[in-house]
Design a binder for these strands. Structure first.
Lengths: 354, 354
DNA sequence: TTGAAAGCGCTAACAA
DNA sequence: TTGTTAGCGCTTTCAA
């Protein structure tokens, strides 16, 4: 490992001079600078970032960190790309960490990145408690932006989509198509995003005077497996829903699976509309109608806010709310006049294996 | 920020003692240790990892890094989970970096993690040149395991699936079903994984004396969009293939999209078999027959190799080859006796929008 | 068992 | 413009 000191010796200058050509080259005379640069490349020297940061250079890290709530959820890959592109533009490395929907993993991870003295952090509001590690980070003055929801107990920049509006639109669309028996597959309500999506569902139902039916309301941890199970329960009901609103892409995937295995045809037997429009939604058969929240934009915007804050630590915090967009494809249809139970129906048509 | 020095002062001991209770508590008397521990928790002290590493503690980082070739590809989320679980078991944090299929990004990233002195690195063989940064890292003695392919020019542990075998099996399966006109959607051949998958295709075709048809061989950067485009080209051929083998999940997604938009029914009009069996394959309609390479296992195994190497730096390097598995679902069928062009056919049946 | 002191590799006053 | 020197926060000999 070549050290700065080796470069200095090789170039016949002091370590300070080498350090200067690295950090403020204008303070070094051209000939000396040339000598040093030559030595650096000759020796293949690369500064040790650890030492650099320890010695106090504020911008020595040039790295920011993104906490991914769940790396299995493709939605976040797009967020990550959005963040990464901005980071790269700012000549900065993005360090990813997976919290796995788990507050303690998040904490571990945040502690690490704090200790690594990153320049800033983008994190979803996983732990909303008053003394969560994120709150402490903010209090310590580390630039933080909250993504995918606002952060309580502290003033930070945040970016998120209007979940309530997006899901209300989705449900409204279903209602306009004539659906009344609309079910929802929803993630845990203690996660704000899901709470709001459920809120949007309720709002649209109420706006149309459709009473909520307890058995059409299914909750569970967000996963494809859970989506399949809940959708199967729903579809096995004596009076099954004519449409299902899935509150994220994992639930959507699970519901699609259930519908196929029950031999249901979409949208003839049942309509489905999802929250999250990721590319694979186009590959479903039929392609899915879904509420798009631009994950890439979310990441992009968050990263931009973060760099703003890094540059101007004193600035007032901002909340940016992104508009969701309903992407209509082929998975929703109108309700047949006499909707009969699609599974138990006795029309002689044999369904696929169950 | 509480420093070690503050703890020492508060506990009325020297900094060395505090450091000892942190690193080798058995060398400190019980009462002193208790005092120090009390001080630590009272003051909420957390050691500065940067300083810790700079001062030379070999295991101060407790972090390993995984380079993800392409974060948009869900396959790698599973790899990441596999790695992460092992890392956590080893009380170690996983730092993720996205190389984006780009050797220079990979290099940037590897330089960062090297400079951060991580304990080890898991990386795919993106850059196979003799003086790639990975090679240098290995030469510097940093534990590296190559995932998803072997690394040239240097001896390292590596884990990968038998791509050749997996794709040969897939194609063989198609052939047994009666297909001859089998197309392949393949990623760039300079990426070893794709080269081998193409090799498996050729091998199975040759083993059955089926000549290769140039126009059924489609290559492109791996992406859903590209998959759709190439599949559309294939299906618009005068004599289209009766089956398509897609060499990764992104191509599969694109091909599914193309088939739907051309109004083709799977497997009646065309069969499809994919490489990569990720959960969403079950959500397709019909559920996809695919070659499974257990991404989670891949990650898991790689991480275990890495920790072995970290513990025993001198050990002989190992290559572990994972067996792929053909998962048969509903997307492949036999070839109709008189296969007619599914798009241009004149059977009165109107297809969906194109 | 404990403390004093010398680094780890770099940066940044302060002098020259 | 350049060099000297004192840290950054921690670990770790070496003595006591």
């Amino acid at each position: 490992m070549t050290l700065l000191r080796d470069v200095a010796r090789y170039a016949g200058v002091s370590t300070a001079t080498v350090s200067r050509v690295l950090n403020s080259p204008e303070k070094v005379s051209a000939p000396t600078r040339a000598k040093v640069i030559a030595a650096i490349s000759k020796l293949g020297y690369r500064p040790n970032r650890v030492a650099r940061r320890l010695s106090g250079r504020k911008d020595a890290a040039r790295m920011i960190s993104l906490i991914i709530p769940d790396i299995q959820n493709p939605f976040y890959s797009f967020v990550a790309r959005g963040v990464e592109d901005v980071a790269n533009q700012n000549d900065c490395t993005l360090i990813l960490g997976n919290a796995d929907g788990n507050a303690s993993k998040e904490e571990t991870y945040l502690n690490v990145v704090r200790a690594e003295s990153v320049d800033g952090i983008i994190a979803p509001p996983i732990d909303q408690s008053k003394d969560s590690i994120v709150v402490r980070l903010v209090q310590e003055g580390i630039p933080v932006v909250s993504i995918d929801g606002p952060l309580h107990h502290v003033e930070v920049d945040s970016v998120y989509v209007d979940n309530m509006k997006g899901s209300a639109e989705a449900v409204q669309y279903l209602i306009q198509l004539g659906h009344h028996r609309i079910a929802i597959l929803c993630g845990p309500l203690n996660y704000l995003g899901f709470k709001e999506r459920f809120g949007g569902y309720k709002q649209a139902m109420a706006a149309n005077q459709i009473p909520l039916v307890e058995r059409y309301l299914k909750f569970g941890q967000s996963s494809q497996e859970m989506g399949r199970i809940l959708a199967e329960e729903l579809l096995a009901l004596e009076t099954p829903p004519t449409a299902i609103f899935t509150s994220d892409n994992l639930f959507t995937a699970g519901a699609m699976e259930a519908m196929y295995s029950l031999g249901l045809s979409i949208p003839n037997d049942v309509s489905i509309i999802g929250f999250d429009d990721i590319p694979v939604m186009r590959s479903y058969n039929p392609p899915l109608t879904a509420v798009r929240q631009s994950a890439y934009n979310l990441g992009n915007t968050a990263a931009e806010l973060l760099f703003e804050r890094i540059k101007h630590p004193g600035r007032k915090s901002e909340k940016i709310i992104l508009e969701p967009e309903l992407i209509v494809r082929d998975s929703c249809g109108s309700v047949p006049e006499n909707h009969i139970h699609p599974i138990n129906r006795d029309d002689g048509e044999k369904k696929r294996r169950v």
